[in-house]
Design a protein around this nucleic acid. Structure first.
Lengths: 153, 153
DNA sequence: CGGTGATAGATAGCATGCTATGTAACATTG
DNA sequence: CAATGTTACATAGCATGCTATCTATCACCG
């Protein structure tokens, strides 16, 4: 039997992720935000002064991706990067006032995306959906750590 | 209560999609393929001679995205684009022999990604996972068509 | 202290995907 | 049949994310 994209978890997840991103992008563009900076903001709104490394670990992106994202955020006045006095390699990341002011409207927009996406599901289905995604994430992370040995040696 | 990324469907789906993409990329890179061309190949392996518009409709990507992807595929010797004799605007897309030869190993690689991702799920959970993703996809597509009016006016 | 390795971050270069816009060919209608 | 609108595709420009590689700083060990 031929491989069918419509029965492929990977294909479906990719498609769904693009739909989520399109929707989020449309809703936060009026705030001057974009989808790539949003996850970093979510972490920083919980507490800033983090290092780039800490952000990378919380968001599971590659280090150059984060460098690039933070550069855009600094350019757009969302963050400042200050040299750490104790460690010359580290630049700690601090939110600007304008970034703080965006927390309420931006998270409201993201919540609307989730709500409208899951609208057709029952509460049980929603919980099951999230639980299954988490389980698959853990599975793929475990596989990556095992095969790629990027679980730090 | 604060918006939490770890309970956000959008965030989790984005994360999962990146994990799938990393895994697929690692497995098909040895074949000289990349993740963006793969969906187009899946469609074309089922039957080529399609127009760009037909590919776009089957894969739900924006038109310039497909133009760009096809340009790379042509550059890499995976496809040829021939002018349609009946309609001067249309360029029909044909697979090269080398692209045809990649169907078996490439789909095997993709199947392995899916298998390892879903390994920890029971057969029932796997079916439920796919069904839920499809349902959410349909929900977001309906919303986009309703709000954006890109359901062709 | 000096060398060696590890760590934090930056750079280069590319693929993927988007919006906005341009161009050429077709279709439709007065 | 000419004007007008629609359709197919291309271009420009940008954001997001990756791999590979470089630099600077720190940590540790002799």
């Amino acid at each position: 039997m031929r491989f069918s994209k419509d029965d492929s978890a990977g294909f479906l997840v990719n498609h769904l992720a693009r739909l989520f991103a399109r929707d989020l992008q449309a809703r936060i563009k009026p705030l001057g935000l974009s989808t790539g900076t949003f996850p970093a903001l979510l972490v920083l709104w919980e507490g800033d002064g983090l290092t780039q490394r800490e952000l990378i670990d919380r968001l599971d992106v590659e280090q150059p991706t984060m460098t690039h994202t933070l550069a855009r955020m600094e350019r757009d006045g969302l963050i400042r990067r200050d040299q750490d006095p104790a460690d010359g390699r580290v630049r700690r990341i601090w939110l600007t006032e304008s970034a703080r002011a965006l927390e309420a409207p931006a998270t409201a927009a993201a919540a609307q995306v989730n709500t409208s996406a899951l609208e057709q599901l029952s509460p049980e289905e929603r919980a099951a959906f999230l639980a299954l995604i988490r389980k698959v994430i853990l599975g793929l992370q475990a596989e990556a750590a095992a095969s790629g040995r990027d679980g730090k040696t």
